[in-house]
């Protein structure tokens, strides 16, 4: 599968999201409380998921994050989407330091500017495909007719025009992931992040989903994390991570 080509314009070089000197540490287990400290329970050690990582995502480019399990791919995705904040360093989105925003404002920023595709789809079983796709528009206060129209249109674009009223339980894995892709795009985000988007799918289905993902992503910036080479093949460049650091040698520009 060929990488998206010929889409770059001058504004495509404008930084959309940037991680600068980002380190993310997690604590193994919970902090001891007063009683815990009284009984000599010590603070659990930290584990470093990312260390001093810098990466710039420009408009309209597709960036692949590669690397073995535990290398920090998902953590970097989460930081770029504002799902969590770095322990050190800064992450900016359209020039705004995400660390300076409240949780509520970061949630709003994701709603308006970031689409997310999960490995496990995370669709609501109680809603139809159209209901799932339209859900983010609820938060934006879009009218019902407009929600239905936009959701139906996106489902048609991912080839699910005959599955609009089906619930997730009535759809195959590939169809569910296409619904999730449509949902990620329904608010017309400037950045789409996808964490192992084909991880739950067989090879053939994965390729079909990727083709449609690439097609409907249009000129949006996409960051996707994957172990899977065919998935990474749609990227303009691939950044390899190893033990929480960017392996500069392995970063490939396609």
């Amino acid at each position: 599968m060929a990488a998206r080509s010929g889409s770059r314009t001058d504004d495509s070089l404008t930084p959309l999201a940037r991680a600068e000197g980002v380190t993310r540490r997690y604590r193994r287990g919970s902090e001891p409380g007063r009683v815990g400290r009284l009984f000599g329970r010590s603070t659990p050690p930290d584990v470093t998921a990312l260390e001093d990582v810098s990466l710039t995502i420009t408009q309209k480019e597709i960036v692949g994050l590669a690397g073995p399990s535990g290398s920090g791919k998902s953590t970097l995705l989460h930081l770029l989407a504002g799902l969590e904040l770095p322990s050190e360093g800064t992450v900016t989105f359209q020039g705004t330091d995400l660390g300076s925003l409240s949780t509520r404002k970061r949630t709003r920023l994701r709603l308006e500017h970031v689409g997310i595709v999960f490995q496990h789809f995370h669709l609501l079983d109680s809603l139809s495909a159209r209901g799932n796709v339209a859900l983010p528009l609820v938060e934006l206060g879009v009218s019902k007719s407009e929600r239905r129209h936009r959701a139906t249109e996106l489902l048609e674009r991912v080839g699910l025009e005959d599955r609009v009223t089906h619930r997730p339980g009535e759809l195959s894995g590939g169809e569910q992931q296409r619904v999730a892709i449509a949902r990620a795009l329904v608010t017309d985000p400037t950045l789409v992040i996808a964490d192992e988007p084909t991880g739950e799918l067989d090879t053939e289905t994965g390729l079909t989903v990727l083709e449609q993902f690439e097609r409907v992503a249009d000129d949006r910036a996409v960051v996707l994390a994957s172990h899977d080479q065919p998935t990474l093949d749609i990227a303009d460049r691939v950044v390899r991570l190893c033990d929480g650091r960017i392996d500069e040698e392995a970063t490939v520009r396609l």
């Binding site: 989407a81 799902l83 509520r104 949630t107 709003r108 920023l109 994701r110 709603l111 308006e112 970031v114 689409g115 997310i116 999960f118 995370h122 609501l124 859900l135 983010p136 609820v138 938060e139 949902r183 990620a184 608010t187």
Partner: peptide, 16 residues
């Protein structure tokens, strides 16, 4: 909890 977490990740507000 998982469904709500996914909704929140997509930008659905805590108040909703």
């Amino acid at each position: 909890r998982q469904e709500f977490a996914a909704l929140k990740a997509q930008g659905i507000s805590a108040s909703t």
